[in-house]
């Protein structure tokens, strides 16, 4: 039983980390009033650029940096179309997703089957030797350790800085933000740069951290799960940690239960993460505080 608990915790953290980065990426976009369904594509571009960089240079640090940069650049296509050209964000997002799928497959094709050592695990001295939780919590790679601090940082930035206040104001009421002397477009661009970086990191963790391999469409829908997790976390970065851990935990739990030999059908267990999400949404759904940003999905057309 202790083995199960340890494996479950460790699996939840590893599965939850890319989800958390992706959720934070979507969260900051939506806080600025833009739904980005192209996140899956951004993650894929991050995953492939990270993996290719790792193959070429052998450096996981460079790989992660390149993935973040590539994610940000790729997300700028979306930003330009939606913010400057006022294109429909939902349609543009879906187009960006498919574009990312194709582009990443093209870039990654020569690298399928390449071998990398990937992000090294960094065991924290002393703490790793703690009974039960030690190996589960303190034997991970750097992106895992950074995930929760990044979420906390984002929370602080959004709720305790002037920039964060302006960004949220743009998501709630861009006209009012504009009247108060902020530039909604500039703030939205900035939010999407940060979102691109986080999306790139999410992809890099999948390819360079967890799987240490590149495979076409290896995100397998995690970009869309992140969109749901943003709603689940009610647009709050700290609740996003809980959401990602819960969902990652559900994935890990179903695989652990199979490995343990629990006599439940694999098909039913595979549904577990999604059933759990539905249950939590149903239970939490009643409270309407911290609901979506008021101008989410509306395109700011200036004040003419």
């Amino acid at each position: 039983m202790l083995g199960l608990a340890r494996g479950l915790l460790s699996g939840a953290i590893v599965s939850g980390t890319p989800l958390l980065y992706a959720t934070l990426a979507e969260l900051i976009s939506e806080r600025a009033g833009i739904v980005n369904l192209g996140l899956e594509g951004v993650m894929l571009v991050g995953a492939v650029v990270g993996f290719v960089t790792c193959v070429a240079t052998g450096s996981a640090t460079l790989a992660v940096a390149a993935a973040a940069l590539a994610g940000a650049l790729f997300n700028m296509i979306f930003a330009f179309l939606v913010i400057s050209r006022r294109a429909n964000p939902l349609a543009t997002g879906l187009a960006l997703m498919f574009c990312g799928v194709g582009l990443s497959a093209l870039l990654g094709a020569p690298y399928v089957g390449s071998q990398i050592s990937g992000l090294p695990e960094i065991p924290v001295p002393v703490l790793t030797d703690l009974p039960l939780v030690g190996p589960a919590l303190f034997a991970h790679d750097a992106l895992v350790y950074l995930a929760a601090p990044v979420a906390t940082l984002l929370w602080w930035v959004l709720f305790f800085t002037r920039w964060g206040l302006s960004l949220r104001a743009v998501g709630e009421n861009p006209v009012a933000a504009f009247a108060a002397g902020r530039s909604p477009h500039r703030l939205q661009y900035q939010a999407l740069v940060v979102a691109g970086i986080l999306g790139g990191l999410a992809g890099a963790h999948l390819s360079v951290g967890v799987a240490k391999a590149w495979a076409e469409w290896m995100t397998a829908g995690r970009g869309f799960i992140a969109v749901a997790l943003v709603i689940f976390s009610k647009w709050h970065p700290l609740r996003a940690i809980a959401g990602a851990l819960l969902f990652g935990g559900a994935i890990s739990l179903q695989l652990q239960m199979q490995a343990l030999g629990v006599p439940i059908s694999a098909f039913l267990l595979d549904m577990l993460p999604y059933v759990l999400s539905l249950v939590v949404l149903a239970v939490w759904g009643g409270a309407r505080r911290h609901a979506a940003p008021a101008s989410l999905g509306r395109v700011f057309r200036g004040t003419e």
């Binding site: 494996g7 967890v210 397998a220 890990s252 695989l255 652990q256 199979q258 490995a259």
Partner: peptide, 14 residues
């Protein structure tokens, strides 16, 4: 691949 890694780890944990 990421899920395969998690599944492999779950088995190794057992």
């Amino acid at each position: 691949p990421a899920k395969e890694a998690t599944a492999a780890n779950a088995l190794l944990d057992q």
